[in-house]
Computed example of a mutant assay.
Amino acid sequence: MPASRWGAAIVSALVLWAVAQAFAGTVPEPDDYRMENYRAAVPATLKGARVVLTEEVIELWKNKQALFVDVLPYDPKPKNLPAGTIWKEKIRQDIPDSIWLANVGYGVLNKEMETYFRDGLKSRLGEDRDRLVLFYCQKDCWMSWNAAKRAVEWGYRAVLWYPLGTDGWVAAGQPTQRNVPLGF
């Protein structure tokens, strides 16, 4: 192996070690979905999925190798808001070219939300359950963990989970793009 590859392998190993140390002693991976307190420390693992770090996420994005799925919750403007009420729309800046499947990361999904989630994935992946699909939200957000876990349970075989989400992406100096939730 050339020296440059050894150097890259050593750097990758050190980065993985640093991340493992950052997560060490934090939250054990639960057997089921997170049902409350969604903005809290997350585990370092997700059975059936691969946890990815910012460096790899950047490469996947640059090379268009994965479907990026933002699962940040979204509260739409209420339909029967009284006239004259001021409503400030949340603006979401996320990883460019992502689809935003809002509200699919809760621990329990009603039938309508489950259909929205399944249809959203199918709209981009078709029946291909082997294509890389990367789930993210924000740092310390269980929504992306829950959504990735659900995709694994539905038979997707190339699920990636990015626990640092847009916070890690922005901290690495990467571009963002304004997005709106699919179907809202």
Rank of each mutant, 00 (worst) to 15 (best):
K47M: 09
G168F: 06
Q174S: 05
G84V: 00
A8E: 15
V152K: 01
L101N: 14
W154Y: 08
D97K: 13
E114D: 05
E112T: 08
W6F: 15
L81S: 07
R178S: 06
Y38D: 02
D119P: 06
A172R: 05
I91M: 02
E29A: 11
V159N: 03
T85R: 04
A44Q: 08
L81V: 09
R118E: 07
D32I: 03
Q174K: 03
E36F: 13
Q65N: 15
R178M: 14
W154Q: 01
M113G: 08
L125Q: 11
V19S: 12
Y74A: 00
P163M: 10
L101G: 07
A22T: 11
A13M: 15
Y74S: 00
P82D: 02
Y38W: 11
Y116N: 00
P96V: 13
G183C: 11
G126H: 00
E59S: 14
Y116K: 03
C137L: 07
G165H: 12
P73E: 11
D140W: 13
A40M: 12
P30G: 09
D70C: 14
S4E: 15
E29R: 05
P78M: 09
M1A: 13
L125T: 10
L134C: 08
F184N: 08
V170Q: 03
E36A: 15
S12C: 09
G107V: 03
V152Q: 02
S144P: 02
A102S: 04
D130F: 03
V152W: 03
Q138E: 11
Q177I: 04
A148R: 02
Y136T: 12
P175G: 01
S12G: 05
W17M: 11
D70I: 01
S144L: 12
E153V: 00
N110H: 09
F117L: 09
K139Y: 08
P73I: 09
T26I: 05
Y38H: 00
S4R: 13
W154K: 05
A151R: 08
W6C: 14
